[in-house]
């Protein structure tokens, strides 16, 4: 086996393991830490796919900021009473069965697919993809700031709205900034 295949399988196994732990660990803090590890291994896979900028942003934004925020909020709450991970009741029972069976269908489908080759997407074309010149960060910037400029600006607007909204939701009286 080649070096890159071994690396891919290692990273994929780690990603799936941490992803599985994310949804099964009872303590939400461990859940968040496992999710952070999932994101770091995914960043590794992005590096393998020559998406260097996306991988760096994945580390800085997802693993470094979003997940730190999650962990921080969870540590602020005292959730030591959390004994059960899963919800109870008829409705959630149905959801549980449905969710797990859907996941089972995905697993079976992928296993069957990988045996019967229905998932192999035109291997000739995929092999040709190796020879294609991979886009650089410069290409990404050029496309982002020309063709998708409107979407980019709208995202900026969305972030502004979200920032204002979050401040409005979480504003509390008291603390060091109390004025009245």
């Amino acid at each position: 086996m080649e070096m890159s295949s071994i690396l891919f399988y290692l990273l994929a196994a780690a990603t799936l393991f941490f992803g599985f732990r994310t949804i099964t660990v009872a303590n939400p803090i461990f859940s968040a830490l496992n999710l952070a590890l999932t994101m770091i291994t995914l960043a590794g896979i992005f590096f393998m796919l020559d998406a260097y900028f996306i991988a760096g942003v994945q580390l800085a934004v997802y693993a470094g900021a979003v997940m730190v925020l999650f962990v921080m909020v969870l540590m602020l709450f005292d959730l030591s009473g959390e004994a059960r991970a899963f919800s109870r009741g008829m409705m959630s029972g149905i959801l549980k069965v449905g969710g797990v069976s859907l996941f089972g269908i995905i697993v079976i489908a992928t296993i069957m697919g990988s045996f019967s080759n229905i998932l192999v997407i035109d291997s000739g074309e995929a092999a040709a993809g190796q020879a294609l010149v991979q886009p650089t960060t410069r290409d990404l910037a050029v496309v982002l700031f020309s063709r998708y400029l409107l979407a980019f600006e709208l995202l900026g607007l969305l972030l502004l709205v979200v920032a204002v909204g979050v401040v409005a939701v979480s504003r509390i009286k008291g603390g060091t900034h109390a004025r009245d």
């Binding site: 803090i29 830490l33 900028f53 760096g56 994945q58 580390l59 800085a60 730190v68 540590m75």
Partner: peptide, 25 residues
């Protein structure tokens, strides 16, 4: 040598926050 050097360094050093959070908690 990573082509996007500075983005990588920023991303990796932002992970240092976990050490402090883990230690504290």
């Amino acid at each position: 040598e990573i082509g996007i050097g500075i983005v990588f360094v920023l991303g990796v050093s932002s992970l240092a926050a976990y050490a402090l959070l883990l230690a504290g908690w």
